[in-house]
């Protein structure tokens, strides 16, 4: 099982693997927002938590359609399905690989981008904490969406349509934790942590079921 994680990370970091793509996308979204809403510092500070969270969410979405699609196209998904590796574990590891290549870099880069948006100084720890707790949920929910749409030719667009509504609770609690900070942010963080744990515990099973149906 560790072999699968190592392989996915190796592929992601090789040329053409798409590592850093999500990060670059995150940067571009955050840079474009001031062009859209104006350069007023107070306005930017007000909307910074939301922009950072929506940007992170879209960046996470960007690489999801490759999660199973590549293994599907070259046949390795069917070969993995007939191997001793349980598909539930495969789904969880795919989510972990996605998080390591997308969620974690986004979390680390977010404070830098917060500077661009004049994020309030006291909000930085909340930003990092909320992304650290929330991005695993984005990855595992996305893995479920990717498993549902893996067999489809135009799966990418449908994937967004299926996954984005599922991201609503995480987005709300995540951005709210940053916005509230010390004044109630902990509650949001705790609730989001609950969603993340629940998603990590249950969604790999749903993803594995979807993979089995698609491989049939």
């Amino acid at each position: 099982m560790r072999a699968l994680l190592l392989r996915d990370l190796r592929i992601a970091t090789r040329a053409g693997g798409g590592f850093g793509l999500g990060l670059a996308f995150f940067l571009i979204v955050v840079v474009l927002v001031p062009f859209g809403v104006g350069a007023e510092t107070a306005t930017l500070r007000l909307i910074a938590p939301g922009i950072l969270w929506v940007g992170a969410l879209l960046a996470a979405l960007l690489t999801l359609d490759r999660l199973f699609a590549l293994d599907w196209e070259d046949g390795s998904l069917a070969l993995i399905a007939t191997s001793p590796a349980p598909l539930e574990g495969v789904a969880l590891l795919k989510a972990l690989a996605h998080w390591l290549t997308t969620g974690l870099p986004l979390t680390l880069a977010a404070p830098l981008l917060g500077v661009l948006l004049n994020l309030a100084p006291e909000a930085y720890p909340w930003l990092v904490a909320s992304l650290l707790v929330g991005t695993p949920a984005l990855s595992v929910i996305g893995t479920f969406g990717a498993a549902l749409t893996v067999g489809l030719r135009r799966g990418g667009l449908l994937l967004s349509l299926l996954v984005l509504p599922l991201y609503v609770p995480t987005l709300i609690f995540g951005a709210e934790a940053v916005r509230r900070g010390a004044d109630g942010g902990a509650t949001a963080l705790a609730l989001m942590g609950g969603i993340t744990l629940g998603a990590l515990a249950l969604l790999p099973f749903a993803a594995a079921a979807a993979l089995r149906v698609n491989l049939r």
């Binding site: 479920f144 549902l148 067999g151 299926l162 509504p165 599922l166 609503v168 609770p169 709300i172 609690f173 709210e176 509650t187 949001a188 609730l191 969603i195 969604l203 749903a206 079921a209 979807a210 149906v213 698609n214 049939r216």
Partner: peptide, 26 residues
């Protein structure tokens, strides 16, 4: 295949719809 996958989506979606409702209130 469509029936199986939509059923799984409906179950997962129901849980997240309820979560969304409470999140939205918050």
């Amino acid at each position: 295949t469509a029936a199986d996958l939509t059923s799984v989506l409906c179950m997962v979606g129901s849980v997240f719809a309820i979560l969304s409702r409470y999140a939205v209130r918050f």
